[in-house]
Design a protein around this nucleic acid. Structure first.
Length: 508
RNA sequence: GGCCCGUUCGUCUAAGGGCUAGGACACCACCCUUUCACGGUGGCGAUACGGGUUCGAGUCCCGUACGGGCUACCA
């Protein structure tokens, strides 16, 4: 193991950043920070056919929102750049050549048609035909062609790829930090392409070369990479020495309701799968993210961290700093975890209650503004947020819970009042308006007293008037304590709403 | 098909040979609150199956079943 911890997240900029991707980033980040190491983001854009406009910026926007700042990247600089593989193209060829020289790889000139034909040929044992030690001698490559023929083809600029020459019989093993010691039989593995015809490396070559060049100490990646790990082990052995290899940790997958979590699941079951909204530049399709749905980054991160990891206690709410402090690879699970949107919302609600109102304010302000509310007094907004945040799970709910503080309700639920309305109550409310006008103290405490006294003189019980009062003030049967609402609304507005309520009830 | 990984309440998980298998989400009931939440109390609910090893197995071993991943000149 290297002295300094250096980990990397290596996304391919091809679209929205998925929950699973964010969790991989998170574990990378937590491990790096815990060990006072560096967190690097390397863009894996070796497939030029899959270039997607804006996808790279989008990834960094997601990281920004989550608060997971890289130490080195295209955007953050660093001594190991460039951090975009397309700009490192010249690095890879020499290593591929070295592998050929050493007899661990070879040139292959097969056309797409020839490959297809090989794959269609029945293998006899029901296994799918692949380019491997059983078939490679029937193909057009530098193993079957003479040196002269190969040189001639190369001189003619015939398109070729470089493939790894998988040993026919070798047990490849390595220790995964999460799964322990793993064994693979090289005989069933295929001769993966390392260098493509366009001169770009495939993931397999690029990941090994760049992890070496960038001095990566630990690799955290999804479990879907496990089957190709032996290829990477072999490349390390051939190129840089197994003793210099980073430690591997294959993270369990995040699953949807039916298997591997996909974008489709989100559409089907009505929950987001991307961190931030993603708009496909070719189709124009927009997919809402957790942020747009109204999640707080703190809640989102907290939820993701606990999906596959826990600190061994029953603690569930963690700040980023607490996560860094408590994180350990030993406590990362080894089996896939199903994404549960209800639980995700619960985490968000916990954070809604926990977070300081001043931190919530900008996001809440944005929600209200989007709904056409102009907030001028921040002090008032602060009081309002304090009062209603515990009943909001997602940010947009602030509109329904708080709009009446800034705007009189357009309609009121008079059906909640009418059935039990009578002359006695009417007189009470008229008297209430009068008493409120004379009130010198409009605090919740003083208001409670005013109402209770007045209720007594009208031969009523507080419970009989509270609901009508509430409905007149907020429009319906919801919201925080009535007297808290009146205090914030103030004398003029409170009286105005009661009078309006009274006239609506009179007309009905 | 082949290879690989996995399997504790519906979901996230605790328990690393010795407990009535614990917690959280969701759900239900009650309490608090004359709204809605918050909060509180309780309930429902799991070691996939079969063999071993052991005085003793959710924990170790083997098999079966089931789930998942990979099997591209994609990552």
């Amino acid at each position: 193991m290297k002295e300094k911890v250096r980990v990397r997240f290596a996304p391919s900029p091809t679209g929205g950043l998925h929950l699973g991707g964010v969790r991989t980033v998170l574990y990378n980040y937590l491990f790096a920070k815990k060990n006072e190491g560096s967190f690097i983001v390397r863009i894996e854009d070796t497939d030029q056919n899959r270039y997607v406009e804006g996808a790279e910026d989008y990834i960094f926007d997601c990281l920004d929102w989550c608060g997971l700042t890289p130490d080195e990247s295209v955007r953050h600089g660093g001594d190991f750049g460039p951090y975009r593989q397309s700009e490192r193209k010249t690095n890879y060829h020499q290593y591929a050549e070295q592998l050929v020289q050493d007899g661990n790889a070879y040139y292959a000139f097969d056309t797409a048609e020839e490959l297809e034909k090989m794959r269609q040929t029945p293998s006899g044992d029901n296994s799918v035909q692949q380019y491997d030690h059983r078939t490679r001698m029937n193909m057009r490559n530098s193993l079957t062609l003479s040196t002269d023929e190969v040189n001639q083809l190369l001189a003619q600029k015939t398109p070729y790829v470089i493939r790894i020459k998988m040993p026919e019989e070798e047990q490849i093993s390595f220790t995964d930090l999460i799964r322990g010691k793993l064994f693979f039989d090289s005989g069933v593995l295929d001769d993966k392409v390392l260098l493509k015809a366009d001169g770009m490396p495939t993931y397999h070559l690029a990941v090994v070369v760049d992890d070496f060049l960038m001095q990566i100490s630990h690799v955290f990646r999804g479990e879907e990479w496990l089957p190709s790990a032996p290829v990477h082990i072999l490349l390390w052995k051939y190129l840089f020495g197994e003793e210099n290899m980073p430690a591997w940790a294959h993270l369990p997958l995040l699953l949807g309701p039916n298997g591997k979590l996909s974008k489709r699941d989100g559409a089907k079951y009505g929950f987001p799968v991307y961190a931030l909204q993603w708009t496909d530049p070719t189709t124009g399709d927009t997919t809402e993210g957790f942020k747009e749905k109204g999640f707080l980054p703190q809640g989102f991160i907290n939820f993701l961290a606990l999906l596959g990891w826990n600190d061994g206690s029953e603690k569930e709410i963690f700040t980023l700093d607490e996560l860094i402090h408590s994180f350990s690879l030993q406590r990362v699970h080894n089996s896939g975890a199903h994404f549960d949107y209800e639980k995700a919302k619960w985490y968000n609600h916990e954070w809604m209650k926990k977070l300081d109102t001043t931190i919530l304010m900008p996001a809440v302000n944005e929600v209200l503004k989007k709904n056409g509310l102009k907030i001028t007094a921040n002090e008032k907004l602060e009081k309002v947020i304090d009062l209603v945040k515990e009943r909001c799970t997602l940010l947009p709910e602030f509109y329904a819970q708080a709009s009446f503080f800034f705007q009189a309700p357009e309609t009121i639920d008079s059906q909640a009042i009418l059935p039990k309305w009578n002359e006695q109550k009417k007189q009470f409310f008229e008297a209430l308006v009068n008493n409120l006008e004379n009130a010198s103290d409009f605090s919740a405490g003083a208001l409670t007293k005013i109402l209770n006294e007045l209720v007594a003189t009208h031969q009523l019980k507080p419970g009989e008037v509270m609901l009508p009062l509430r409905v007149m003030l907020v429009g319906g049967k919801f919201g925080p304590g009535v007297f808290d609402i009146m205090e914030i609304l103030g004398k003029t507005e409170s009286i105005k709403r009661i009078q309006q309520g009274l006239s609506i009830v009179a007309k009905a």
